[in-house]
Amino acid sequence: MPFDLKEIASISGMPGLYKIIAPTRNGIIVESLAEKPVRSVAQARNRVSILQEISMYTNDAEATVPLADIFDRIKEKYGTNLPVNAKSSTQELSDFMESVLPDYDQERVYASDMKKLVQWYQAVSQFLPYAEEKATDAPAPEAAPAETTSAEDSDNQEDVKEKKAAKKKA
């Protein structure tokens, strides 16, 4: 997944997204994703949600779609110019979600979830690098079989015999 969301978190009681820097005794040190990043400590009592662990409901009761996959779909379809923002109407947000994730569960994905998705995508796309996936269509180069000459084989066999003989003497 091109956006690396392993160290990006949303913290209850703190606006915006944060990059996790290091653990402390009482919580974690985080740095805000902003023009001028500010470091602070998120206490252990705060609920920290890692973005990589978040997913959205689909109409299939058993399946959800990870947030990173949704971000990839948004990047492919819209790039950084989204047709909606966090202040868009519920209908506009719903249309946007349907264009990105057609089978999202309209009963369990609320307008507030869609607003968060838009805000988070804008922050992530602005402050995190997007790593293009490597082309997997090209066949992998096959490793050439190791060729040994008969002289090398006999040298190797003699080395093995010498080692065995040395072990017997010891």
Rank of each mutant, 00 (worst) to 15 (best):
F96E: 02
T136K: 10
L67H: 02
S125C: 04
R39Y: 03
D105H: 09
T64L: 05
Y104C: 03
I74R: 00
I50K: 10
L101Q: 09
A135G: 05
K77W: 00
P102C: 05
L117Q: 02
D72Q: 12
E7Y: 03
K19L: 12
M97P: 01
Q43F: 05
Q119F: 01
K75L: 01
R25Q: 14
S154N: 12
N81C: 06
D69K: 09
V100Q: 05
T64N: 13
S154A: 14
A143G: 04
G27C: 08
A63N: 11
K167V: 14
S40K: 14
I54E: 06
S94V: 06
Q122D: 04
N85G: 11
D155F: 04
D137Q: 11
A165H: 08
D137W: 06
E162V: 13
S150F: 08
I29S: 10
S40Q: 15
M97H: 01
K163I: 13
P66R: 05
Q91W: 00
K134R: 15
P139G: 02
I54P: 01
V38N: 09
P66S: 11
M97V: 03
L67S: 01
P83Y: 03
K164A: 13
K77M: 11
K19V: 09
S125F: 00
V65G: 01
L82D: 02
A144G: 05
R108Y: 07
A34I: 02
K167T: 08
K169H: 08
E132M: 07
I21R: 07
K163C: 04
I54R: 04
E35V: 14
D4T: 06
K77V: 04
A151Y: 05
P141G: 07
P15N: 12
E158Y: 06
M1S: 14
Y121G: 01
D153Y: 08
A151G: 02
Y110I: 10
P145L: 10
D159I: 14
L33S: 06
S10H: 07
E152R: 12
A63K: 15
A143S: 12
V100H: 02
P15Q: 10
S55Q: 09
V48Y: 00
T90L: 08
Y110Q: 15
D4K: 11
K134M: 13
A166C: 01
E152P: 00
Q119W: 01
A44H: 13
A111L: 03
Q126W: 00
A61S: 11
L117M: 06
E98G: 05
V109R: 09
Y110S: 15
P23L: 05
V109K: 07
N26M: 10
T149V: 08
G79P: 02
K36L: 07
P37I: 03
S10Y: 05
S154Y: 09
